[in-house]
């Protein structure tokens, strides 16, 4: 379960018409859901793509799809999973379509010769750069597991992989990040 999903009751009530089909989400309910979800979804997309403008674009597209699909509302947890899965798919489509990975690496390389940054900016830049050295799927796995607190089932749903593969994929992603951190002298000492 996504860790940040402890929610007050009102949104959990499913609105249904007499025919049993879910009601289209009205603006007030959408706004509530958006305010609870958009921040963490944007952070996820930003870490995944490394580009604020792209994250903005994908965030909006995710919510457009969400409103168009009007997924059956079982619970907010369900909706949240739905939107994270949609956002992940959109981000992966984006990588495939524009080969953004390469362009961003070039942009990062260019920005290294730019004006001096504040310490906070340097930290953010270094961390983003380290994270961008991972593959998109590895980034998504790590963010969902460590920041969103998603379990293997949620991750498998978000990334469209089998639940039993998540353990192996996550292990590899952590190993790769661990190696990167070790190489940069950032790995913590973990005493057994």
């Amino acid at each position: 379960m996504f860790a940040s999903m402890t929610l007050p009751a009102p949104l959990l009530v499913e609105a249904r018409t007499r025919s049993g089909k879910p009601d289209p989400m009205d603006e007030a309910r959408f706004e509530t859901f958006y305010r609870r979800t958009a921040g963490s979804l944007w952070s996820y997309l930003y870490r995944l793509t490394g580009d604020g403008a792209v994250a903005d674009d994908l965030l909006q597209k995710s919510f457009f799809r969400f409103l168009r699909a009007n997924p059956a509302v079982a619970s907010e947890e369900h909706l949240r999973r739905w939107i994270f899965r949609t956002a992940t798919n959109l981000a992966f489509d984006h990588f495939r379509e524009t080969k953004r990975e390469r362009a961003r690496s070039e942009a990062t390389a260019r920005s290294e010769s730019g004006p001096p940054m504040e310490a906070r900016e340097v930290l953010r830049h270094d961390m983003m750069k380290t994270f961008s050295e991972l593959k998109p799927r590895e980034r998504a796995l790590l963010w969902l597991a460590h920041v969103e607190g998603a379990d293997h089932e949620d991750i498998s749903e978000a990334l469209g992989v089998k639940t039993r593969s998540v353990k192996v994929l996550l292990f590899r992603a952590r190993k790769r990040l661990g190696e990167l951190l070790t190489k940069k002298g950032l790995a913590p000492e973990v005493k057994r």
Partner: peptide, 12 residues
């Protein structure tokens, strides 16, 4: 190994 770094990273 990676959790502390991810924690910091999520907070930037």
């Amino acid at each position: 190994m990676v959790a502390p770094w991810m924690e910091r990273f999520s907070r930037i």
